[in-house]
Simulated assay, not measured.
Amino acid sequence: MSAVPERARPVRTCVGCRCRAVASELLRVVAAAEAVVPDPRRRLSGRGAWLHLDSKCLRLAERRRAFPRALRVPGPLDVSAVRTHLDVAEGVTD
Score class of each variant (00 low, 15 high):
V36K: 02
E34Q: 14
A33R: 15
G46L: 08
D54H: 09
E6S: 14
P38L: 07
R47M: 10
A23C: 04
R18V: 06
A33F: 08
V92H: 10
R42H: 12
H52K: 01
V11N: 05
D94F: 07
R69H: 11
L77T: 00
P76F: 05
F67A: 03
C17Y: 02
V36L: 07
A21V: 00
A32I: 10
G46R: 07
V30M: 07
R43T: 13
R83G: 09
E34K: 12
V79H: 00
C19Y: 06
S80C: 08
R41Y: 09
L26C: 03
R7V: 13
E6L: 15
R65L: 11
C14S: 11
R18W: 05
D94I: 01
V73T: 11
R20W: 02
T84V: 11
W50F: 11
G91I: 02
C14H: 01
R41Q: 14
M1Q: 13
G75S: 03
L86A: 02
R43C: 07
A61C: 10
R7T: 13
G75C: 04
P38E: 09
A32D: 15
A89K: 07
R18G: 06
P38S: 12
R47S: 12
D87W: 08
S24V: 09
A21H: 11
P10I: 06
L27T: 04
D39P: 02
R9H: 09
R28M: 08
V22W: 10
V36G: 01
M1A: 15
V73H: 09
L44I: 04
V36E: 03
C17S: 06
A61M: 07
L53H: 12
R47C: 10
R83W: 05
C57V: 03
C19Q: 14
S80A: 12
A81E: 12
V36T: 03
R59A: 15
L27D: 01
D94L: 10
P5A: 15
S80D: 13
K56E: 13
C57R: 04
A21I: 03
R28I: 07
G16K: 00
L26S: 06
S45E: 13
A61G: 06
S80P: 03
H52N: 04
A49P: 04
V37P: 01
L51E: 01
P10D: 10
V4K: 14
E34Y: 06
S45V: 11
P68H: 06
L51Y: 01
F67K: 00
R20S: 13
R42N: 12
L77Q: 00
G16C: 05
P38M: 07
R18F: 05
L86R: 00
G46Q: 09
A49V: 05
V11G: 09
C17T: 07
D87R: 11
F67G: 02
R18N: 10
A81M: 08
V37W: 06
V30H: 04
E34G: 14
R43V: 13
V88N: 10
A3T: 14
V4T: 14
T84C: 08
L77A: 03
V22E: 13
R42L: 09
R20P: 01
S55H: 10
R18A: 12
D54L: 06
L58H: 02
L60G: 07
A61P: 01
V88D: 11
L58K: 03
P74F: 05
D87F: 08
A33N: 14
R47L: 11
